[in-house]
Nucleic acid binder design. Structure first.
Length: 768
DNA sequence: TGGCCGACTTAGGAAGGTACCC
DNA sequence: GGGTACCTTCCTAAGTCGGCCA
């Protein structure tokens, strides 16, 4: 499989069927140092590229960095400047994080809780409801829309021509002026919660994609919800469960004990063996200790959490052993919480919330070599939470005796609640479920942008090829980077703050140490070898032959640079995206990933699907097409723990089925002989019965074999990510319709809910 | 104009639920 | 009915990108 699609050179991670995916993870030993563990991965032997040439990331990463002198003195100054800036940033961030703790009261005094909504809302034009028709707002226009997707420019279209638009407009006008709206909505809400089934049907019937959308940048007119569910308060351990320091039992204060339990719960996890994790944990734990505890507990190595760990294990075991009734009770309670807090009313529709709980306190689990792993993620209190809802809604009540940090009414954003977390100082949000209108519309729009790229991708490719020859270094760099983004589906690669997160890169942030140039390699010319850690510290390893001009350019970019210097020193994502924006409205680096993923799926499905194939064979083809995309996008997963065993079990089943089949065939042969001799009805019937039996076993055997192939090929590849985020669902829907494959075989319930719009609108002739 | 930050998407792993087998 | 394997859902980290402000 070449991974060819359209332009014929998008390069799936050198090879197919997962053989080239390097997943350097050993779950039991060192999950996070995925890149290090080369020896342990037996599967690696299958991989095309030789590991002997791999560099060890862990040792070389910024080794002796301080000592290195840059050839370019300007770069020296630049770095110094950066360092200063980093210090400043660090300071600001710390202040910010600190302020999230100290600020709430002050902010409220400063008028954070206000009656007036932000300016954006105030200025909301009363008479202009800001709708524009959905790209496809009635069935008749379906194909028309597909063909005219280039005209799908939400911002520019503004119309109110169908009855539905009028009706909805009227409803929203009422929302703003009619005092009765609240009871109205309440009734709807109540009804909804009463009859789960009927509500479900109603929900399923709501085709938001046939309705109008806002053109004024607002996301909603009415928003009502009950706020987030907070983590339950800490329950102290029973007295019999002891913590030991230096071999002696020690009773901890409640705050110290709580943090200790976070560590104790993770005792079996690789994290707790890591120096950084232990160091960060111990530092933060000590902050929670009383002065007496602090003076006594000075060495983490002398702490014994094993009894605590045993206690939690026993609890977990007890949960599993609960009676049906007890489990049912818990289920019902969860359902009650879901019904109460898991939904909101947005513009007259009950919508499912994606995450309605605040994140519980615990120890931060950064991925890869994250410098902050083990730090204490503090408990989120109502005083940390900003609520977002409409002015005319019933505001959520904070838990008794508490206050929200702020209540605002910003309909230019989609979130219902937010808070600032204390590890990175970033904002966390409560948002809607992927099946909601607000997420669905955005998703649909994303694929429309990618389809627009399809129409001008040839021109863009011609342009960047031309730019490889540019006299300006910055343009050459931009063109080569874009070539990689297009060909290899690399991520843009924003700049990151050094020391704040794991050392990962994307295209624009690639460093010299991440590429190796081979003028000749394995009978191929101009081979570029990539080896770096991408998002989530997943290793990207690929060797690809490139065009001579790209190769020569890369040689030029590497000249006089140190391993830790930027490969594209005249480029960043901002510059690149600004350029892309000029080439096509709405084009960013990310769109190439969506485009190339979707076009690859479409092309692979065309190539692999055979009309005569059985349904399982067709599904295998689909999964293979999906897999090609996952490989292209480097979506990896850790092989399931039980992989080898489950493969063995499956093979046993296949062997048994094969024996069964040969036995059945023998019986059929005998029956045929019998019939030949007797020519009677009874023997004829017997032949039929035996024939059917053989057929049945054959089918079953084939199914098992397909399953085995699929599973083997899927060992280290995650299909879900691309299916959920990169593949235009209409391609899959159309394929299902064309080949008579039930959609349930491709999308599970949740996925069908997310892609309801696509399932409804795509016909079998849909073309991405 | 560049850097910062808010808002959102994308991501893999863990936990939970369920189907299937013995 | 219990055990197990797999699938689904939940969780939250880690990206992208655009707008704002100094």
């Amino acid at each position: 499989m070449s991974g060819d699609h359209g332009h014929g050179d998008t390069q799936v991670n050198s090879g197919s069927k997962g053989s080239d995916i390097h997943k350097h993870k050993d779950k039991h030993k060192d999950k996070e140092h995925r890149h290090r563990d080369h020896k342990k991965d037996k599967e690696r032997e299958k991989f095309k590229h030789s590991n002997s040439e791999h560099k060890e990331y862990s040792d070389k990463k910024h080794k002796d960095k301080e000592k290195l002198k840059y050839i370019n003195s300007g770069s020296d100054k630049h770095r110094e400047k950066h360092k200063e800036k980093d210090k400043d940033k660090e300071k600001r961030k710390e202040e910010k994080i600190k302020s999230t703790h100290d600020r709430p009261k002050k902010e409220k005094e400063n008028g954070y809780v206000r009656d007036t909504s932000p300016a954006g809302i105030k200025s909301e034009p009363e008479e202009d409801n800001g709708f524009y028709p959905s790209p496809q707002h009635n069935k008749n226009s379906k194909r028309e829309y597909d063909d005219k997707e280039c005209e799908y420019k939400p911002k520019k279209v503004k119309a109110e021509h169908d009855k539905k638009a009028q009706k909805r407009k009227h409803e929203y006008e009422e929302d703003e002026v009619d005092e009765d709206i609240k009871p109205k909505i309440k009734t709807k809400y109540k009804k909804a919660t009463e009859g789960k089934k009927s509500k479900k049907e109603e929900e399923e019937k709501w085709k938001w994609w046939e309705e109008e959308r806002y053109t004024d940048g607002s996301k909603w007119r009415f928003l009502e919800h009950k706020g987030p569910v907070f983590a339950p308060p800490y329950e102290p351990l029973p007295d019999k469960v002891k913590f030991y320091y230096d071999g002696k039992p020690m009773k901890l204060s409640a705050p110290a004990e709580e943090v200790a339990t976070f560590f104790a719960k993770m005792l079996d996890h690789e994290y707790t063996t890591k120096d950084i994790f232990r160091k960060n944990f111990f530092k933060d734990w000590r902050k929670e200790m009383t002065s007496e505890e602090k003076s006594k507990i000075t060495d983490l190595n002398k702490c014994d959490f094993s009894e605590m760990n045993d206690y939690f294990k026993a609890q977990s075991e007890a949960r599993k052993q609960m009676s049906k009734e007890e489990k049912q009770k818990i289920k019902e309670e969860n359902e009650r919480l879901l019904q109460e807090y898991g939904f909101c009313i947005m513009d007259n529709h009950k919508e499912r919330i994606g995450n309605f709980r605040t994140e519980p306190p615990g120890l931060f689990r950064g991925r890869g070599d994250h410098p902050k792993m083990g730090m204490l993620k503090r408990r989120i209190r109502p005083e940390d939470v900003i609520i977002n809802c409409s002015k005319d809604s019933k505001q959520p009540k904070p838990p008794p005796g508490t206050k929200w940090k702020e209540v605002r009414h910003d309909n230019k954003v989609t979130w219902l609640a937010s808070w600032t977390e204390n590890i990175q100082g970033s904002i966390k949000y409560i948002m809607l479920n992927p099946s909601s209108r607000i997420k669905g519309e955005k998703d649909w729009q994303k694929y429309e942008t990618a389809r627009r790229l399809k129409k001008c991708v040839d021109r863009i490719r011609a342009q960047y090829r031309e730019d490889w020859k540019s006299k300006e270094m910055r343009i050459r760099q931009r063109a080569v980077a874009l070539y990689f983004i297009d060909k290899l589906a690399l991520r843009a690669g924003n700049e990151k703050e050094e020391g704040e997160t794991a050392d990962t890169v994307g295209c624009c942030s690639l460093r010299v140490e991440h590429v190796n140039l081979h003028p000749k390699m394995d009978d191929q010319e101009y081979v570029v070898e990539f080896d770096f850690l991408g998002k989530d510290s997943i290793r990207y390893y690929n060797k690809i032959p490139v065009e001579k001009r790209v190769f020569k350019n890369l040689q030029l970019f590497l000249e006089n640079k140190q391993p830790e210097d930027d490969l594209f020193d005249r480029l960043n994502t901002c510059i690149l995206n600004k350029h892309l924006q000029e080439l096509m409205d709405g084009l960013t680096a990310k769109v190439f990933r969506t485009y190339n993923a979707s076009i690859t799926l479409q092309q692979q499905l065309k190539e692999l699907s055979c009309p005569d194939d059985s349904i399982p064979a067709k599904i295998l083809s689909y999964n293979r097409a999906n897999r090609a995309v996952a490989i292209l996008c480097n979506h990896q997963r850790a092989p399931p723990k039980t992989f080898e065993k489950s493969m063995q079990n499956l093979q046993t089943k296949i062997d048994e089925k094969q024996n069964q089949l040969s036995a059945a065939r023998k019986q059929l042969k005998a029956a045929k002989a019998d019939h030949k001799a007797s020519h009677d009805e009874k023997s004829k019937k017997a032949v039929e019965v035996k024939r059917k039996a053989v057929q049945r076993i054959e089918e079953h055997l084939m199914k098992l074999q397909m399953q085995a192939t699929d599973r083997e090929e899927n060992k280290q590849i995650a299909l879900g990510t691309s299916k959920l985020n990169y593949l235009d669902p209409r391609i899959s829907v159309a394929w299902c319709k064309k080949w008579g494959v039930p959609i349930e075989k491709i999308y599970n319930k949740t996925q069908r809910e997310k892609f309801a719009w696509a399932i409804d609108m795509a016909e079998k002739d849909y073309e991405f």
